[in-house]
Design a protein around this nucleic acid. Sequence first.
DNA 1: CACCGGTAAGTAATTAGTTACTTACCAATA
DNA 2: TATTGGTAAGTAACTAATTACTTACCGGTG
Lengths: 211, 211
Amino acid sequence: MSDIAVTPMLRLSGEERRAEIVDAVLRLSAERSPGLITTAEIARALSLSQGALFKHFPRKEDIWLAVAERIAESLLATVEQAAQQAASPLAALHGIFMAHVGFVIEHPGAPRFIFHELQRSVDSPVKSRLREMLARYRQILMGLLETAEQQGELAEGTNKSAAASLFLGSIQGLVMQSMLAGSSAAMRQQAEAILPIFERGIRREKSGEAA
Amino acid sequence: MSDIAVTPMLRLSGEERRAEIVDAVLRLSAERSPGLITTAEIARALSLSQGALFKHFPRKEDIWLAVAERIAESLLATVEQAAQQAASPLAALHGIFMAHVGFVIEHPGAPRFIFHELQRSVDSPVKSRLREMLARYRQILMGLLETAEQQGELAEGTNKSAAASLFLGSIQGLVMQSMLAGSSAAMRQQAEAILPIFERGIRREKSGEAA
DNA sequence: CACCGGTAAGTAATTAGTTACTTACCAATA
DNA sequence: TATTGGTAAGTAACTAATTACTTACCGGTG
């Protein structure tokens, strides 16, 4: 009759709970600016008391670091997988671009989180981790561009570093515009329209091309 | 002998003070995330009491709206001026790109402010104003691309909307990377390296081009 | 010119509400 | 029973906004 615990207190292991917390932050980041996400809000999303969070992460910053770690690992895995599946370096770039867009559509909170943290001027561990990820990403792009050059697929005189910047920049631009519109649904189409322009910008023109 | 007022209380007109407040927010935005800027901090930057701010703006949000207004006006003025000075549509795009980069270098707080506000999911008047600015910007780009197409400067089959997206996206990407590096100094060089790739992507290849 | 009164820019102190984080205690499970 | 994931009730610091009051400026009038 006097049952108080209607829901029988879901008690997860530390590891599981930490994963859930990271998930929750990513989910919330899709809708709010990560800077405005409070510990109370995270707890509410998990039907947990606010104080419980600090059993698993001593400081809020540590939660943020775990989120960055998660994003870095999964995005790089996505990118590397897409790169391996392609037949040629330029096809790999194409594949990576679309895979990245797919990743963003699937995890809308991720780019929001990244932007917000990179924007911070102080060099937090979180920002460091994300910077490291972007450096690795750029390294992959540069490798592909170099291979493309060696195979004669690249236009002569192409600035490979600039090409990598343009590649990353156009994805960031796409994300920004999807934030503007409020829907990430149209992103894939937009990406498919932008890619040909980029590819035309770096690909060596075939001598005997039909109009 | 017993002079208390060492600094003789600088009393500005409302208009002047409002301009100073907007300036201060822009300056602070260059170093901190705009979301973390407090009214106390703005007041401190102006050697003013915190409460005084509310003599000029009834709510904090109104300060933010004034900042958005300022950014929108000055950026669009910069863009339109650059467009008018150019001899051809494609030269105009080139000029706008570099002018925009120059604007960002001169006002490092502006892109930070824009990103932060666009990131917010709620459709605030601030976000509306910035969206309006970007729409106008895109409209200018589309106009130039159409003229370029009519004059035969554009590659056949170029998706003009996608080209405009790529244009805006690559600027956003440049800004993001300058945030990463922490210095906006290298931006101009990066821009000059990226532009040729973009231009190659949309420009009609001249039939008799020397290697 | 000097005085006076209204207006508006300023201050200092305080408010209610949040925030990240802590503490004391509890209960499940290994 | 010792450990650990959990709660509930705190706390100190900070936030935007408001308050009561002060001070500078400016345009008539005596």
